[in-house]
Write a protein that binds this DNA or RNA. Structure first.
Lengths: 125, 125
DNA sequence: GTATGTGTACTGTGCGATATAGTACAGATA
DNA sequence: TATCTGTACTATATCGCACAGTACACATAC
């Protein structure tokens, strides 16, 4: 059974979209730590993607420690992680900078960006 | 003469990195409206990239109305734009959501993200 | 006029990422 | 034993990206 939702878009790789959907589902509580995660073949069948693509999703999620692989069993959703220093820097400098640059370029007010952050932070959607 | 700085990284296309560097230079005041923008051939020579790649940069910047092309002359840096509704939604929903999801996933505090926004907003770097 | 500098549009080549199809194997479970 | 897991292959096709090189129309400067 698939516990998260996806609507595929053009422009970015399928495996990337699935990885993001899983991250979002974990953060919003749609997927909880300890939940059983769909297997390669099940995901491929349900989402109608190639098994190799599903395998790529599993491998990426495992490398980011979002799921834990239990050989012969499948995978389990992990607890939320704590950021390493480099991950923290990547987000609080580079990612935020990109958002700020794009906002200023389009004359979007700082307050509106902050509001959007606060609004998105309560995402039980 | 090139009025902006770039340090090429692996992982993302060259033309994208140059486009972002220009956006940042405009936002920080390093490039001002009315400034003459380097031509395709000049950019290719100075940045040591292929003329086709430089052409791609110019085309992207023009499509986003960051520069104005004056046929036979070159290009000029435009004024800052106002966001259309769809651009605004794209940023205040999708982009912000990605930042929030990634932050929550790594247990980064909301206050730290807001601080980073405020810090980056004063970018006269 | 000529020479030069613009943007733009092609043809090719090479490389890597992505997605697909299909097969196979080791290991754990039932 | 049968079935499920993840994983690792071989192949194919398509696309994005960067590169090399050539060509054309247009405006400017001389």
């Amino acid at each position: 059974m698939i516990n998260f939702t996806i609507k595929f878009q053009y422009g970015s790789p399928i495996y990337e979209q699935v990885v993001y959907a899983v991250k979002k589902a974990v953060v919003t509580g749609q997927l909880k730590p300890g939940d059983i995660f769909p297997s390669v073949r099940e995901m491929a069948k349900e989402l109608r993607i190639n098994p190799n693509t599903a395998q790529k999703v599993i491998a990426h999620l495992a490398r980011e420690r979002i799921i834990e692989i239990k050989p012969g069993i499948g995978s389990l959703v992990s607890e939320l992680n704590t950021a390493t220093k480099s991950q923290r820097d990547q987000i609080l400098n580079n990612e935020v900078e990109k958002l700020v640059v794009e906002s200023k370029r389009l004359s979007i007010k700082r307050e509106d960006v902050i509001d959007a952050i606060n609004r998105n932070w309560k995402l039980d959607k």
